[in-house]
């Protein structure tokens, strides 16, 4: 029961989803749509589980007075504030829920990503010392691509041409090789999962 039924569900679900692609009948398409909807519904329940986990971790830190425990009040306040506002007053534009999104969520998120600009710059300084052929290739490509959108006077046209050629020819070749590698790996993993060879997702007893 504990191990066989999940393996059976994986086998049936996996084989059906793979086979339905080759059977474009209304019946199979309808079941496919149901399956996709069910996955989404389960995902929402799983999200609830995630929120419960966040709540427990935060409360646990407060109870044990772990280092920086006071910040967990802020996390819980933000969490419950958003949930209460979103569930009871709606999520339409102009509601308090969306105001919190625009004035708190968006600025912090964009600032966090923008912060990476500084760290990328310092990483680039260390990585871009052209000591070997491969690092020189990396450096030159990155420089050409970075300067692509910047006006460079008379060399702008040439830089645009070179950047466009790099993107559509050698870069495309490498992207294809990577995509094929990912594809083969994905297919192998999917087969292992469906056939029950890969079972790590079930955890341990």
């Amino acid at each position: 029961m504990r191990w066989q039924i999940p393996l059976l569900i994986v086998l049936i679900g996996g084989v059906f989803m793979a086979v339905q692609y080759f059977v474009p009948l209304e019946f199979s398409e309808r079941i496919y749509e149901y399956c996709v909807d069910w996955v989404i519904i389960v995902g929402v329940f799983a999200m609830g589980l995630g929120l419960w986990s966040l709540f427990r971790v935060s409360v646990g830190k407060i109870q044990t007075k772990a280092q920086g425990w006071g910040y967990n009040f802020i996390t819980l306040g933000g969490l419950f504030g958003m949930i209460l506002l979103g569930l009871f007053s709606g999520i339409e534009e102009g509601k308090q829920f969306m105001n919190l999104f625009w004035y708190i969520y968006t600025p912090i998120q964009s600032s966090m990503f923008a912060l990476l600009a500084f760290y990328v710059a310092s990483a680039a300084y260390r990585a871009f010392r052209a000591r070997t052929l491969v690092s020189t290739i990396l450096l030159l490509t990155a420089v050409v691509i970075m300067l692509r959108l910047i006006p460079l006077g008379p060399v702008s046209g040439l830089n645009q041409t070179v950047a466009s050629w790099i993107l559509t020819v050698p870069n495309m070749a490498a992207k294809r090789a990577i995509a094929m590698g990912i594809g083969l790996g994905g297919i192998a993993t999917a087969l292992k999962v469906v056939l029950g060879i890969e079972r790590s997702y079930m955890g341990k007893e």
Binding site: L51, T75, L76, G78, L79, F80, M82, I104, Y105, I108
Partner: peptide, 8 residues
């Protein structure tokens, strides 16, 4: 604050 707001 970001952790709480984004999860919610």
């Amino acid at each position: 604050l970001f952790v709480g707001i984004s999860a919610g």
